[in-house]
Simulated scan of single mutants.
Amino acid sequence: MQKATVPRSSAYLTALSQEIERKLQKALNIPSHRLELLQQLFADIALEIDDRAREIILSKGEDADADEITESNLCFYDVLANHFLIKPENGQSILNLIVLLWSQSFASHIFALLFHKWLFEVPIENPEALLRYGSALVQGATNVFWIDIQTNSRRFLSLFRYLLEDVALVPTRLEKISLQARRDLFHLLSKFLFFYNFDHMLERFLKHFPIFTNTFLIGGPVDVFVIELTDQLQKLKVEPVLLHYLSSLRALQGLELRMTTSTRLKACLYSFTSPGGPMYPTRAVRHAAWGSLDLLFPVGQYPRHIISFFFRLLYPWYWPSTCWNLIKACITTILYSLLRLLFSSWERMTKSRND
């Protein structure tokens, strides 16, 4: 019975590989439709596998590991990346076509999704090719992670997990790519570590951070991580994602930062506490930024709030909303106080009757 399922799964993955090769060849032959074809191919391999395809693909244990079998949101690129790792010859023609399309949009996206495991686990003898593949991987991973940011989804979580747990934390694999690619990879992981909810691995991640030549100027791993995180915060425009980042900043509590890095982070958070430009934060973002700012920098929090209040007085168009929110806060506080008083009185009366 098991032997009958092996060809079915293998044939399905081979057919998928041939279809990818066909679309890449078509994109290479038709320059006018190249962008559209590559975009469609990227969307296809990033799709979540439906139940019928899952039954066919995962019927063979060697093309998908046990962890991925249990994932409910398994995508086509997950199984294809494993397939090209186990059978590198099936992906060689696809790789050659991607190399010919390097300069095109979505080419690096497709390479990062399909060949991220192949790059680090299959021997590659050509050093020039390794240099090219390493930079393409970081570029492609950056692009797909930003797609997750913009859509507030975690479709490419498995790619991030692999780059973090199986590459960044494994020195033997990390050494396969160039020093510049390693630096870019750690910068990339620093930007998206909180987004993909790996803040619990921050300490391990920082211990494996490579030492760069400009450490004297910018600081150690913690400073580099916070600098990249600060730059990421200033680029975020999706409110739920920004709120998620701000709530995750509690993981930075207790870390020793350089004065310049600390000031940079403080200035970034402070820019989210005021309405209007340049960040134009919503009320929820402002409150989250104040919470993170007070948590990470408790010294001087009361003077900061007082100064912020007086600066708000310089913008009369914000007075109505400020007064309304203040009234709502006062009413809510009074209601909660009355409810607490009522319940405590009721408990005392009940207790006295029982006695």
Rank of each mutant, 00 (worst) to 15 (best):
A15N: 13
A288G: 09
A107I: 03
L119I: 05
L179E: 06
Y162V: 05
L265R: 14
L295I: 01
V241H: 10
T230L: 06
H116I: 02
V224F: 06
D184M: 02
L326C: 12
V241F: 11
F198W: 04
S308Y: 00
A329P: 01
H244A: 14
T70F: 01
R161G: 08
L174V: 05
S17W: 01
V79D: 12
T172S: 14
L159A: 08
T260E: 15
H305L: 13
I177Y: 09
G254L: 08
Q39C: 13
K266P: 00
W146Q: 11
P240W: 07
K23T: 08
T260G: 08
A27G: 12
R34K: 14
L296K: 14
M259H: 05
H305W: 03
V170F: 01
T260M: 09
L130N: 03
N90M: 09
V79Y: 05
I124V: 06
S103V: 00
I218N: 09
P298E: 04
A112D: 06
Q18M: 06
D148T: 02
T263L: 14
V170Y: 02
A53R: 12
R173T: 02
F311R: 05
A43E: 10
E68W: 04
C330N: 12
L229I: 03
L341T: 07
R22M: 10
F272Y: 08
T263M: 15
L189W: 05
S190P: 00
P281S: 13
V241Y: 06
A66I: 02
P88Q: 08
S262D: 08
L341M: 06
S135L: 10
I86E: 15
W319C: 11
I110G: 13
K26I: 01
H200G: 04
L249S: 06
R348E: 10
L100N: 08
I227M: 13
V222N: 03
S158Q: 12
D51A: 15
T273L: 09
E71T: 07
K176W: 00
Y196P: 05
Q25D: 11
N29P: 01
F106G: 05
F297T: 10
L255R: 11
L100M: 08
D44E: 12
N90V: 01
T332M: 09
D63S: 06
L137P: 08
V224N: 09
T70L: 13
F310S: 12
Q25F: 01
S337D: 03
Q40A: 07
P210N: 04
T151G: 14
K176N: 05
L236R: 07
F216K: 13
T263K: 15
I331C: 15
H187Y: 10
Q232N: 07
Y245K: 11
L342I: 06
N82A: 03
P171C: 09
E19A: 12
